[in-house]
Design a binder for these strands. Structure first.
Lengths: 180, 180
DNA sequence: GTCTATAAGGGGATAGAC
DNA sequence: GTCTATCCCCTTATAGAC
C-alpha cells in the first residue's frame, strides 16, 4: 500500500524542524541528513529532489487553502473569518516556515528587530502590560497595515492611508482610542 | 566629499529593480551586472561584498524605523498609527523586497496564489466590486490575522482566535457585519 | 536502505592586466 | 573603472559498492 517508510517520515520531521528554525531557504540537504544521522544520498532514496521534499511538506497546506477558497459561499461575514482563522492556525508552522525568516532578514538581523519594533509600538499604544487580547488586536493593526503598503502600492497614498488607519484603529478597539 | 559615483548609483538602482522583481535572496550579483551591462568584478570596485550592497539599500530603512520607535511618546493613538503608516508607505518598496518573495514562495508559485486567495476571500466577504477602501480594510483583516498565528503561536488557540477575529471584524467595519 | 565518492554547476570573491 | 581569468566553497544530484 506504499505506506511511507519510517525513515521517510523522520526525514520530513527533521526537515520541518530545520525549516522552522532557519527558514526553508537556509536549510540544505546536508543539514537535514546530518541532524538525522544519515547521509545526503540517503535522502535521495526517499525524495527525488530537494523540491519534492519541500513540496511534500507544503503541498497539503496549499491544497487545503485552495479547497477552502473554492468551497465557500458569499456573504458569510464572521463565520468566514472564523473558519479562515482555524485553517491558518492549524498550519501556523508551515506559514511561519514560509514567511518568518527569509535570508535577508537573518543577515541584517531584521527578524527580531521587526517584532521588537512592533512590540514597542504596541507598548506605546497600549501601555506597558497589555492583555493578551490587546496585544493580539495590535498585531492585527500593525500587521494589517504592513500588508496594505505592499498590496495596495498602486493606489494613491492618501486613499490607502485613510482606510488602513481607520481599519487599524477599529481593530484595536476602544484601547486604541486614547486621542483627544 | 565622496559623492557616490554614477555607476555606484546605477548599480543600486538595478539591484533595487531585481530585488523587487524576484526578492533579495533570488538575485545574484551576476544577474545585477548582466542587466546593467557590466561584469561581476566591476561590482566589487564599488561594493566590497554582496552584503554591503544589500545593506546600502536596506540600512537607511532600518535606521529610520529604529529612530521612529525610539522617538515616540506613549498615548498617541491615531497619530502614532498615521505616522507609522507614513513611514512604512515611504519605504513600501523595501518592505516588499524583504517580505514579498522569499524563495519557497517563488518555487512553489505561492506568491501569486496567496494574493489571489485573499482577493477571492475579499470578494466572498464584500461582494464582487468592493470599493478601494473596503479592499484595504479587508487587507488589514486578513493580513493581520496571518501575522497573529505566527506571532502569538505560543498562546492558546481560542484566546488568539477570539481577539483576532474580533479585531479583523472591527477592521472590516460595517461591511464585515453581514451575519445574522 | 544506506554508504563512499564524485560529478556538475552556481555562488561570492580576488588577482592582475588594461 | 572595468575587464578576463580564476579560485574556492557549497549546493544539488548521481553512480555504484555494500
Amino acid at each position: 500500500m506504499a505506506r511511507p517508510s519510517d525513515t521517510k517520515i523522520r526525514i520530513q520531521a527533521t526537515a520541518r524542524e530545520l525549516f522552522l528554525e532557519q527558514g526553508v531557504q537556509n536549510t540544505s540537504l546536508k543539514q537535514i541528513s546530518d541532524r538525522l544521522g544519515i547521509t545526503k544520498p540517503a535522502l535521495y532514496y526517499h525524495f527525488s529532489s530537494r523540491e519534492e521534499l519541500v513540496r511534500s511538506i507544503l503541498q497539503p497546506v496549499v491544497a487545503e487553502l485552495e479547497a477552502f477558497v473554492a468551497g465557500r459561499e458569499p456573504g458569510e461575514g464572521r463565520r468566514l473569518l472564523e473558519d479562515y482563522f482555524d485553517l491558518i492556525w492549524h498550519y501556523r508552522e508551515e506559514i511561519a516556515m514560509v514567511l518568518h525568516a527569509p535570508t535577508v532578514l537573518v543577515e541584517l538581523d531584521l527578524v527580531d528587530r521587526m517584532w521588537l519594533w512592533r512590540k514597542e509600538l504596541t507598548t506605546l499604544l497600549l501601555g506597558p502590560a497589555p492583555s493578551d487580547a490587546a496585544r493580539i488586536r495590535a498585531t492585527v493593526a500593525f500587521g494589517g497595515m504592513s500588508d496594505c503598503v505592499v498590496e495596495h502600492a498602486d493606489l494613491p497614498r492618501d486613499v490607502v492611508k485613510a482606510a488602513a488607519v481607520d481599519a487599524a484603529l477599529a481593530a484595536l478597539g476602544p484601547l486604541g482610542r486614547t486621542d483627544p
